[in-house]
Nucleic acid binder design. Structure first.
Lengths: 341, 341
DNA sequence: TCCCTTTTTGCATACGTATGCAACAGCCTG
DNA sequence: CAGGCTGTTGCATACGTATGCAAAAAGGGA
């Protein structure tokens, strides 16, 4: 029953009365084959149900047309959308995604080690949990690496990020202009570059507006973490605004503020997020948020990947994709016109 | 610079003073190698940075240790979580996921065709958009297929699903017991088995409670679709309860009911969802929902996959994973004790 | 000590495709 | 008609690993 031996190019060749190499050429775009032969081969292939073996092809071409994507935190709505967009874009270019989900708890280097065995043509790291030592190692092997929404000081690594520092600063300027006096900050993962830059921008922005450094608590980019951080801040710091390092946490923050502390938003408390992900637009939240434009970020990533795969010796690049503060109802607005950034 | 030729088993063998086959055996669990040689080979491998080539291995073993996963609708929080769990579970078993995202609009069969070229060991179909003709074709090729959260009448296809019909029925019984007289239904994708079964159960359950068939509108499992469906229903049918075919739509429904129609939930309108996904627990929604237990569903899927890969001739299996109605605040409850299912 | 069993090792080949090379056909130019 | 050029085809080999087989080595029993 399962004796269904796979149909090979040789089988097709025999049926079409030609050689295996001719069959190969028919399935290789741009190769030189006469229309007549091409038709015969296609016909034979169709009737036999031939499907080229990408594994065998990869072995010889040394290109798998597979891109490894490392992700974590699929519970944060930002990442699934990134994945969807990346996948669609790469599929359109004829690449497949080998997915690698990192458990933020466990060390994930040994797992991606496994992925590297598949001779992937490139790697996208969109998970904070992966060491950049690993990224460097890939690069040393000649495999292009792009860090997505993530950065290191390492000058040898390419990345695509949103404008985190400016975002933090804009939020600070906005909150200050609206008359908030005691803004607080809920941090994401302490080690992450996104969090560091957003916080730095926020703190600087507040300073520029003549406000003191904000109270802060860490939410680790998780729902529960942000809920706990909100409780702590509301109990101890009496803030009149909270800037959360991403929307996922901002939602948790709003839930706690409203339902556990009975606060009205933005009457008693303004809340601002980062990412401008789907739920930010849901009416219950109507979240003011600094956007990270998914489309352009993915476009930049795929563009770099394609170029690097074409020529691995190209110089490292760091792309910053601009975003903007999207004003909604979760934060009190300045009376006058907005300060222009 | 990028002359970094890949290190092969032969290089390691030379360095360790042995043969390529010995190196292969060292990296093959269960093969017979003396401790001494094993140590020498490992040492050589380490110093050269050897990484076995999974592509070459797949070519000869005819097993890629890759599982194709087809998904769509990553915007619905249910699926990313499935993906995360599937990935974690498969990685633990030494399998990788080749991700395939289907654009619900475009025909996706040609795309998965592409994926099949990678000699994947198995396929998980978690996207409604894919024809089951394709699934049958895979099976004919000897590649195990499991449909996730999806079913067909085809007796040759295995699947893992939640208890859709019972879920619909329980919701009906629950709403009726609480005294609702004009329940309505917001359907998901018309062609999908999940929607069909949930609706069927709901309609039957209502009939059993002596209620008429519900008003209905299609939301296509999308946020916007559900919002439009809600508007139509509220304008035309004056329902006192709405059962949505999934949580994603239930949230849209609640937003529209509250913010566009000024209804109080559950005072003026009860809303019930299906899936019991993360946001259902968020206090703003506090959504009563029939659960689809992710863990058991994924466990069942992976279990079947592993068995099928081990022995493709095993009979088709259909697993129904039970769920339960999780009572929260979005739907009025019966005064007395609940009817026991 | 010898013979038999078990373990360890290397040789050689297979997996399915791509591609350099040579052979050949057809066509054009002069 | 010679010579050259372009386009098409098949042959042979390479890619990196796994594995059957036989040879060699290591035990084990008497």
């Amino acid at each position: 029953m399962s004796t269904a031996r796979r149909v090979t190019a040789t089988d097709v060749a025999r049926r079409a009365g030609t050689s295996q190499s001719a069959v190969s050429r028919v399935f290789t775009p741009g190769a030189s084959v006469s229309p007549d032969l091409r038709e015969r081969v296609m016909e034979a292939a169709r009737s036999l149900g031939y499907r080229p073996n990408a594994i065998a092809r990869s072995l010889i071409t040394r290109r798998s047309r597979i891109v490894a994507v490392a992700m974590a935190d699929l519970g944060n709505q930002f990442y699934p959308l990134v994945l969807e967009a990346l996948s669609a874009r790469l599929q359109a270019e004829g690449y497949q995604i080998l997915l690698f989900t990192a458990d933020p708890a466990a060390p994930s280097d040994p797992m991606i080690e496994q992925v590297m065995r598949y001779q992937v043509d490139a790697v996208v790291l969109a998970s904070t949990g992966l060491s950049s030592a690993l990224a460097r190692e890939c690069r040393a092997l000649g495999v292009p690496v792009v860090m997505f929404n993530r950065m290191t000081d390492d000058p040898d690594l390419s990345c695509v990020i949103g404008d985190n520092e400016r975002g933090g600063r804009d939020v600070a300027a906005f909150l200050a202009a609206a008359g908030h006096r005691r803004p607080a900050f809920i941090a994401g993962l302490e080690g992450s570059s996104t969090n560091r830059d957003r916080e730095r921008g926020f703190v600087r922005g507040l300073a520029e507006a003549g406000l003191a450094a904000p109270a802060r608590a860490a939410g680790h980019y998780s729902y529960e973490g942000a809920a706990a951080a909100t409780r702590a801040l509301l109990r101890e710091a009496a803030p009149d605004a909270i800037f959360c390092a991403n929307d996922h946490m901002a939602i948790a923050c709003m839930e706690v503020a409203r339902h556990e502390f009975g606060l009205s938003i933005p009457g008693d408390l303004s809340v601002v997020g980062f990412d401008d992900v789907g739920p930010a637009r849901w009416r219950s939240y109507d979240l003011t948020s600094f956007s990270q434009p998914l489309g352009p970020m993915v476009e930049a990533t795929v563009g770099m990947l394609l170029e690097f795969m074409d020529d691995p010796s190209l110089p490292v690049r760091r792309v910053v994709v601009g975003g903007e503060l999207v004003l909604r109802g979760s934060a009190r607005r300045p009376a006058g016109p907005l300060p222009h950034p």
